[in-house]
Every structure is written in structure tokens, then in C-alpha cells.
Design a protein around this nucleic acid. Structure first.
Length: 267
DNA sequence: GTGTCATGCGTAT
DNA sequence: TACGCCTGACACG
């Protein structure tokens, strides 16, 4: 489930267990074996994330760059450690903790310069929300003649939003996914940024994407919501909008489905 | 067992 | 726009 919140959460929780520790590094699957040997026995200094990318910086300054893609998954374990999957690309251990990575789109070693290149390719990250990021986001998007539903997924414009947050954020600001970015008021783009900050940060804290406002859902039930009760639009085609009852629609945008409410998000 | 789908992205055409 | 790549869950027969 790799949107930006997952990687920031992974960096935080994994960092607690591994930052400052000497690690045993291996690659049961073999595809990262040479690199693993190079890092084995080194101290891991810091784990950090930007957008959907995560970085493990070792004392030698070598850095593992991981991108989960659609399928990549982490598993954290305490002893006794389970048998690693045959597809385990990267295994990192201390006596107390184990990190198991399978199925990543990307897992490679970069030097400091190469890390900067990756970071510089990415647009502002709403979870980081550094000073000036909001303006930077508006500046990057406001003149683009592409649909906002495409722009919001472009990692050079905003880093970390994926297909679930796309539908949810556009529902929240009441904008149709096919609306051209350059036709949207800058104030509305600012609201889009603000919602992204709020939702992705919440997702990072909770470890789940829950966008429904307490106003629209019984507050007590909020923690026990099923997957589909947590969202307004994503994968809810044909179901009534939680605000106006209009059936949710969906359509393919660049090979990925987007969902919206035709009434709350007029064309 | 087989087929399909999925919260992604890079490259070729 | 099409395809390739990475894996696991689930529906179906």
C-alpha cells in the first residue's frame, strides 16, 4: 500500500529500531547480494523518506534507495525471526530486530550525489511541508494545461500522492479530476495542498487512509471502519455519495482509475 | 491451478 | 499509448 504516508511511517518506525545500530545485511533472493555484502557489518546512521522514496544512509555514506512500486512490502519482526521469503530482496538484522523487504520496484546503492539527484527530481512533499512548499506547489501546477487528476499524481509536482489520495483529495476540494489545472483558482490549489498535508500526515500517524470527516461518519465508529467506509470516492463507483447520495462515477485517467461524485465535483 | 487485479514508474514507440 | 518489471490476494472453476 505504498503512497507517501507509508514510506514516511516506515522511515519513522524502522528508524527507531535500526538508526545507530550495526546491521547484518543480506539478500536471500540474491538480487541485492553484492550490495548487501558491501554494507554488512556497517552502522546504519539514518533512515529518511521523501514522497514514495526511502533512504538508508550507512556510515560509509553509501545509501540504499528503495522504491516499493506497486508490490513492494516490508515486514518488521522481533526474535525468533520467521524464515525469510524466497523473494526477500533485502534483509537487515540486529539481535533485536529484523527488516524484511520483498518485491520492491527499486533497491540499489547510491552515493550522496546520486541521492540528491533523486530528491531534486521530486516536487514538494506535503508530509514534510517545509516553508514555501505550498507556494512552490501552486507555482508548479497553476500553468499546466493537464487535468488536475493527472497533475496531482505527477511526483515532480507534488511528491507522495497516489491513486487513493488522488480521488479522496479531489473529492474534498470539490474539483472534477478532468478539470484543467490552469483553470483552477490558485486559492483552490492552495486548499488542495492543505488537504494533502492534513490527510497524508494523518495517514502517516494512523497507518491507514481514513479521509471521511467525523461529520459524515459516527465518531465512535471511526476506529472500526471497514476499508470502504473510510473513504469518500476511491473504488465506490455506483455507491451513493456520502454527502449528496449521487452515485459515484469512475473513469480511466492514464491507465489508472479515478473516482468522483458528479454532483459534488461538477465538470 | 489459473487468471486477474492492485495504493507505481520507467522506457520504447 | 503500450508494455515490462516487481509480488500477493482473491475470485473462479
Amino acid at each position: 500500500m505504498p503512497e507517501g504516508h507509508v514510506l514516511h511511517r516506515a522511515a519513522r518506525l524502522q528508524g527507531k529500531r535500526f538508526n545507530g545500530h550495526e546491521l547484518a545485511v543480506s539478500s536471500p533472493q540474491g538480487r541485492f547480494a553484492d550490495e548487501a555484502r558491501q554494507l554488512d557489518g556497517q552502522v546504519l546512521e539514518m533512515i529518511s523518506a521523501k514522497g514514495k522514496h526511502i533512504f538508508y544512509r550507512f556510515e560509509s555514506d553509501d545509501t540504499i534507495h528503495v522504491h516499493l512500486g506497486l508490490f513492494g512490502k516490508y515486514r518488521l519482526s522481533k526474535p525468533p525471526f520467521p524464515t525469510p521469503s524466497p523473494n526477500c530482496r533485502l534483509l537487515m538484522q540486529t539481535d533485536e530486530n529484523e527488516l524484511h523487504l520483498a518485491g520492491p520496484n527499486q533497491c540499489r546503492i547510491l552515493n550522496g550525489e546520486e541521492v540528491d539527484e533523486v530528491l531534486n527530481r521530486l516536487g514538494p512533499d506535503p508530509i514534510v511541508n517545509a516553508k514555501g512548499d505550498r507556494e512552490e506547489f501552486i507555482r508548479r501546477v497553476e500553468r499546466r494545461k493537464i487535468p488536475i487528476g493527472r497533475a496531482i499524481m505527477d511526483q515532480n509536482l507534488m511528491a507522495g500522492v497516489g491513486n487513493v489520495y488522488r480521488s479522496e483529495l479531489l473529492f474534498q476540494i470539490g474539483v472534477h479530476p478532468w478539470r484543467k489545472a490552469n483553470e483552477i483558482f490558485p486559492e483552490t490549489l492552495g486548499q488542495l495542498w492543505d488537504h494533502a498535508v492534513r490527510e497524508l500526515k494523518a495517514g502517516e500517524r494512523v497507518g491507514k487512509i481514513i479521509t471521511v470527516d467525523p461529520v459524515d461518519v459516527d465518531a465512535e465508529k471511526r476506529s472500526q471502519l471497514t476499508r470502504h467506509e473510510r473513504l469518500y470516492a476511491y473504488k465506490r463507483h455506483g455507491k451513493p455519495c456520502r454527502r449528496c447520495e449521487t452515485p459515484i462515477k469512475h473513469e480511466d485517467i492514464d491507465g489508472r482509475n479515478a473516482w468522483w461524485c458528479p454532483t459534488c465535483q461538477p465538470a
